[in-house]
């Protein structure tokens, strides 16, 4: 493996590796659906899992990497959802043209709101930022409820169902790609430095205002993309689904997965989308159990399920992955434990 790496250069190797893995993952998902391993209901679950991943990963950009805690993510999601839905309702193009355009519009309009809200709100910190973004989120919701062209309190109905597993897969991949490449650049380091120490960051020549708004805006734009997928999946938009409860739900995913870990956000988004489904047999107790799980995880793992762990295919293949090493160590201990008992 190392010889291949040397021959084609490390970065190109990583690119090829990740591209191949992505295609493989997509093929596996398709095979699972088409060969009936996943039934229709299960394969439809892939869509909410997908947009929840986008929501969690994008919120992790501000909450985890930038270190600022916003509570209005659902607001950006609704902006994206409504903007894209109004677009697809208004125009009549083939889906393959219409939907990507709608997603782009969702991202851009949510980004505009991100800048407009981020500029004033990011002057505050900590819980004050949380409460002011919560305020902005609620204002967005109330305004949507009171506007005519958004369908008001009755919501927007009859949105074309464009969202497919393929589109979700593409959007998730793009989201991960954007967040990953951003964080591995000078811009990403600037964002991290703000989380670590804002005053030192300024003193190191970083325009903290610019990078705060940048991270916030990218995060908002991605939430808008999730909103577009959501709108064209459910085919109905109800403003009451974008309240602060939705925002806290997304935040819960991020913190549960581990603040500042994209991998953690993905894991938590998958788990928390599936958890209520698994708990279906508990029917009415499921939300109680959900709440208890949340409290217990926080008490016993305050830094989240994955801490700050990041997934890297390259590290795993070359056996340098810390998570993998830990798992190996656990197995090793068990194995050697057994041997001792045997002796």
């Amino acid at each position: 493996m190392d010889r291949i790496k040397e021959k084609i250069g490390k970065t190109r190797y990583t690119y090829i590796l990740n591209t191949l893995a992505t295609i493989l993952l997509f093929a596996v998902i398709y095979a699972l659906i088409n060969f009936g391993v996943l039934n229709r209901y299960q394969s439809l679950l892939l869509i909410p899992i997908g947009f929840n991943i986008i929501l969690a990963v994008s919120l992790n950009l501000t909450a985890g990497y930038l270190g600022q805690l916003p509570l209005g993510h659902a607001g950006f999601m609704s902006v994206g959802g409504y903007a894209s839905a109004l677009f697809t309702l208004a125009v009549d193009l083939p889906p393959a043209v219409e939907f990507p355009l709608a997603i782009l519009i969702a991202a851009l309009s949510a980004a505009v709101f991100g800048v407009l809200i981020g500029l004033p709100a990011l002057r505050l910190k900590g819980d004050y930022l949380a409460i002011i973004t919560l305020g902005f989120g609620e204002i967005i919701r109330v305004i949507i409820t009171n506007l005519k062209f958004t369908g008001g309190a009755y919501g927007l109905k009859g949105i074309e169902k464009h969202t497919t597993v393929t589109w979700v897969f593409i959007c998730v991949t793009l989201t991960l790609f954007i967040v990953q490449t951003l964080m591995e650049s000078r811009h990403g380091r600037a964002i991290l430095s703000i989380r670590e120490d804002e005053i030192a960051s300024e003193a190191s020549g970083i325009s903290t205002t610019f990078y705060k708004v940048l991270a916030f805006t990218v995060s908002a734009a991605l939430a808008g993309v999730a909103g577009a997928l959501y709108a064209h999946y459910l085919s109905i938009l109800d403003p009451n689904n974008f309240g602060f409860m939705k925002s806290t739900e997304i935040l819960v995913m991020v913190v549960l997965g581990g603040l500042g870990s994209t991998f953690g956000s993905i894991v938590a988004a998958v788990v928390l989308t599936l958890l209520p489904e698994w708990l279906r047999s508990f029917s009415e107790y499921r939300m109680v159990v959900y709440a208890l799980v949340l409290i217990l995880v926080m008490i016993y793992r305050p830094s989240g399920l994955c801490g700050k762990y990041e997934f890297s295919l390259d590290r795993i293949i070359s056996g340098e992955d810390e998570g993998l090493k830990k798992i190996k160590a656990i197995f090793h201990r068990k194995k050697s434990g057994k041997e001792e008992v045997g002796e």
Partner: peptide, 18 residues
């Protein structure tokens, strides 16, 4: 971290409501 505490509070809120 303070945020873990916040999430716990959200959890307690969910718990009471449900």
């Amino acid at each position: 971290p303070k945020i873990s505490l916040l999430i716990t509070a959200i959890g307690v809120s969910y718990l009471l409501q449900n």
